[in-house]
Structures are given as structure tokens and as C-alpha cells.
């Protein structure tokens, strides 16, 4: 903002005590929330997930989360250094959010060096090469996870049974298939919805407890940090297919409630699909984006080679975002100007 010197060449005799004032463009008021405030709001929204993760997986959850966030921040710092950009971007909170989302979608027994690789790939390849915050096409955390999935498929699909509160200290974590994998690959472990809701099942560290995800997600929705349109779209899109599949073959496909509370669906709907940058900016586009994510999650779950599809669903819809945005351009209130 410039503070110009007084140009007192006009009507000099009118005012003999001139003083310079700040010159800037209207409006001169601004709503309180900055980019940083929004990012830290998302971090607050993820606190319940972190608490649930710590309860379920103890120090593994703490270590994975801290190391992933640290890797993301360090990568952004290095990228800023290389490009000669201000280190201020580290304080905007976006790298912390990426690190947390990535960490929460990792399995608890993943070796820590792999989490570091995930964080580096997420920030370096998915965010900074595109120009940093706001410029990336794909959700950085999901790109990082996809990279890990491709490089370390076994480690990425080995799940630990969370510590049962009654047996803490007596047994170690037991390697076990997730409910979704069990349902998919014909095991007879029947997940109970209550366990799914509370998180007492195998899965990634931050997404297993639907309760914690819902608490954090509601916070974001009430604060209007997250748009309600993407979560609604995801739930409707996934719900429609789940109901149809269960109706067609109840023996093979889990019922609606189990589908919606299991895996990363809730986490994806409330925390990943609501990421601003990869989703369309138009209101209608956001509904369509969410609906597409929901549909694709169920298509992958029902017919795909992976037990869970949130990551691929979000990445595919990220790719379609520019197209959706073009289709859903809002029409001005009084009709378009351009003939």
C-alpha cells in the first residue's frame, strides 16, 4: 500500500495544513477471516480425529502425524528456498492441513520413512511444482497417498487392530483385514455398525472413528469453513449406489449404514472432498463434484480391485473439476451480458 506524498498543486489556497493519507481502493472494510484463519480452523476440525487416533493407536498416531506434518513443512521450505520465495507461506497453515490429512489416511503400522516420502511427494510434486497454494490441480494429500500406494502396496494395506480399551497393555496389535477388505474378499468377519461408528475396527489412523469425523466435520460445517455441498453430494452419491447394491444382493454387499460409516467415506466427504483448491468453485459444481466422488467411491468398493476408493475417487474428480466448473458457470441475476 502506497503512502503518496501530498500533491498540493491544486487549489493551494484552500488548505494550508495538508497531510498525506493512505490511498487504496474500496472497500476499506474486510471480514475477519483470513486464509490462515481458515486453515487453522480446519486443523481445529481435525483435533477430534487426532484424539480418536491417539486413543486407538497411541504413540504410533502421534509419531505418524508429527513426522508427516514435519515432512510437509520442510518440503515447502525447501521449495520456497529454491524458488526464492518468501517463507511466509509456511505460516498459512496449508502444509499442516495437507500433512494431517495425509497422516490420517495412513495405516498405523506404516514405517515412518514411508510417511516422510508421502509428505515430500504431496508437497513437492502435487503443490509446489504447480506454483504453491491455490494452484494445484490435485489434492496434495491424496497424491502423496497414491504414490505410497504404488510404491509400498503391502505396507499400505496392512492394518492393525486398534488397542481395545479393556486389554491395553496385555496384547499387542493384531494384524487384521479391515471390514471393507473382509467384506470384499469373502471373510466372514461381520463388522458391527457401533464398532464402525466408534472406530473399534482396523483402518487408517484418523478415519476409523466415524464419530470423531462427524464431530470435526460438523464443526467445519457450522463455522462454514467447509461448504455443505460436497459432503451432501458424497453421501447421496455413495448412498444411492449402496442401497441399490444391497437391494440387488444383500449377501454380497453390505447395507447402507455399514457402507457409510466404514472406511474413509465420512473422512473423505467432510475433510477431503471439501478441500477448496481441487474442487469446483461454483455452488452447483460443488454438488456435482461431491456426487461424483460418492459414486466413484462405491463403484470402486463394489467392482474395483481395491477395498477402498476415496483416494482415487477424489483424484479422478479433481481432474474433472475444470470441466465441471465450465458447465456450471453461474448466470448473473439479471441475465448474461455477453450476447
Amino acid at each position: 500500500m502506497a503512502t503518496p506524498s501530498v500533491t498540493n498543486t491544486l487549489a493551494e489556497d484552500v488548505d494550508d495544513t495538508p497531510r498525506p493519507f493512505v490511498v487504496s481502493s474500496a472497500p476499506h472494510l474486510v471480514e475477519g477471516r483470513s486464509t490462515r484463519a481458515i486453515m487453522f480452523d480446519v486443523v481445529i476440525g481435525m483435533v477430534p480425529l487426532f484424539v480418536a487416533a491417539v486413543v486407538l493407536y497411541r504413540w504410533r498416531a502421534v509419531a505418524l502425524t508429527l513426522i508427516t506434518v514435519a515432512a510437509c513443512l520442510a518440503t515447502e521450505a525447501i521449495a520456497n528456498r529454491i524458488r526464492g520465495r518468501s517463507m511466509l507461506s509456511l505460516t498459512d497453515g496449508s502444509a499442516i492441513v495437507t500433512g494431517m490429512i495425509l497422516a490420517f489416511s495412513l495405516p498405523p503400522k506404516l514405517p515412518l520413512f514411508m510417511a516422510v516420502i508421502g509428505g515430500v511427494v504431496a508437497i513437492a510434486l502435487a503443490k509446489m511444482v504447480f506454483g504453491g497454494l491455490g494452484q494445484n490441480l490435485f489434492n496434495p494429500a491424496m497424491v502423496g497417498r497414491a504414490f505410497l500406494m504404488a510404491c509400498f502396496p503391502v505396507a499400505m494395506t496392512t492394518w492393525a487392530q486398534p488397542f481395545d480399551l479393556a486389554t491395553i497393555g496385555t496384547v499387542d496389535a493384531v494384524t487384521q483385514a479391515t471390514p471393507l477388505a473382509a467384506a470384499k474378499f469373502g471373510s466372514d468377519v461381520v463388522p458391527r455398525m457401533w464398532d464402525l461408528f466408534m472406530g473399534k475396527v482396523g483402518g487408517c489412523i484418523g478415519e476409523t472413528s466415524s464419530l470423531a469425523v462427524l464431530i470435526g466435520g460438523m464443526y467445519l460445517l457450522i463455522r462454514r469453513t467447509a461448504d455443505w455441498r460436497q459432503p451432501l453430494g458424497v453421501l447421496v452419491g455413495a448412498g444411492v449406489l449402496a442401497v441399490i447394491a444391497h437391494w440387488a444382493d444383500p449377501g454380497k454387499f453390505a447395507p447402507l449404514g455399514v457402507q457409510l460409516t466404514s472406511g474413509a467415506l465420512m473422512f473423505g466427504a467432510l475433510f477431503i472432498a471439501t478441500d477448496y483448491v481441487g474442487a469446483p468453485i461454483t455452488p452447483k459444481g460443488r454438488l456435482i463434484f461431491g456426487f461424483g466422488v460418492g459414486l466413484l467411491i462405491m463403484v470402486i468398493r463394489l467392482f474395483g480391485g481395491y477395498p477402498e476408493g476415496v483416494m482415487f475417487a477424489v483424484l479422478i474428480m479433481n481432474a474433472l473439476t475444470p470441466l465441471i466448473e465450465r458447465w456450471t458457470r453461474p448466470e448473473p441475476l439479471g441475465g448474461p451480458v455477453a450476447a
Partner: peptide, 27 residues
Amino acid sequence: ETAQWEEGPCIRCGRCIDNCPLYLSPT
């Protein structure tokens, strides 16, 4: 009364579109 602020990159939050009384896409 009038905070001075620095321009940052667009994070595509869509608030300008959600609040435009003429339904335009300011960003």
C-alpha cells in the same frame, strides 16, 4: 477500523461467488 492487508493467492474458497449479490464470479 481499516486493517491494512497483503494480497495472497486465491485459495478457491468460493466466498466471493457465494456472496455476490449479482451472482457473478468475481475471482
